[in-house]
Simulated scan of single mutants.
Amino acid sequence: MAVLSAQRLPLSGLQPTYAAAASGGDQAPVGEKLFLHVRNGGGSSITVTVATPGTVGDLAVADAAQTIPAAGAAFIPLTSTFRDPMTGRAAITYSGVTTVTVAVLQLP
């Protein structure tokens, strides 16, 4: 599992650096102005899942899942809802990682 770092978006803009999605999943910082940008360069859709470690009463909160089409991209908010109490980060998994790249971006 790789630990991703956030890249701040300055007001002048940013050419982000993307990392290959890790087959064992990734961890990312969480916060109100953070989001994950996922690019799927493959010929099949993939599902990105962000674990939601919380519960309401005795019921587990469902994980957030986003399907990304072939050759598509998605932005996924990394709010504190996804903060794992053990690591302080979001746990992210991918149904496939071939030609999938990711970047954590932070709004100004």
Score class of each variant (00 low, 15 high):
A65Q: 11
F82E: 00
Q66E: 09
V48A: 00
A65C: 04
E32Y: 03
A64F: 14
F75S: 15
A70E: 04
T49P: 04
D58C: 12
T93G: 01
P69R: 09
A74T: 03
V30E: 02
R83N: 02
T81C: 06
I68D: 01
V50C: 07
I92K: 12
T52L: 13
N40S: 00
T49F: 11
S80T: 15
A51V: 14
S80A: 14
A91D: 08
G41F: 11
I68S: 02
D26W: 08
G72V: 11
G41W: 08
A90W: 05
V50I: 14
P53N: 14
G43P: 07
T49H: 10
S44H: 14
L36A: 05
G72T: 06
K33G: 05
T93C: 01
G24Y: 13
F82I: 03
A62Q: 05
L78R: 11
A62D: 08
L36N: 06
Q66F: 13
S23R: 09
M86H: 13
G43L: 14
A73C: 01
V61Y: 10
P53S: 15
A70H: 10
T47N: 03
I76V: 09
P85V: 12
I68A: 00
D84N: 15
G57V: 15
I68V: 15
Q66G: 01
G72S: 03
P69A: 15
F75I: 12
M86R: 14
L36P: 00
T67W: 07
A74F: 00
G72W: 00
S44G: 08
V61T: 13
N40V: 12
S44A: 15
T87P: 00
T81R: 14
S23L: 03
A60Q: 12
T81N: 11
G42R: 08
G24Q: 13
A64T: 13
Q27A: 07
T49W: 13
R83G: 04
A51M: 09
R39G: 02
T81E: 12
P85F: 08
M86C: 03
I46P: 01
P69F: 12
P29A: 11
S23Y: 06
G88S: 10
D26Y: 12
L78G: 02
E32S: 15
L34C: 10
G72R: 01
A60F: 07
L34R: 13
T87H: 05
F35W: 10
G54E: 02
I46M: 02
V48P: 00
A73G: 02
T55G: 11
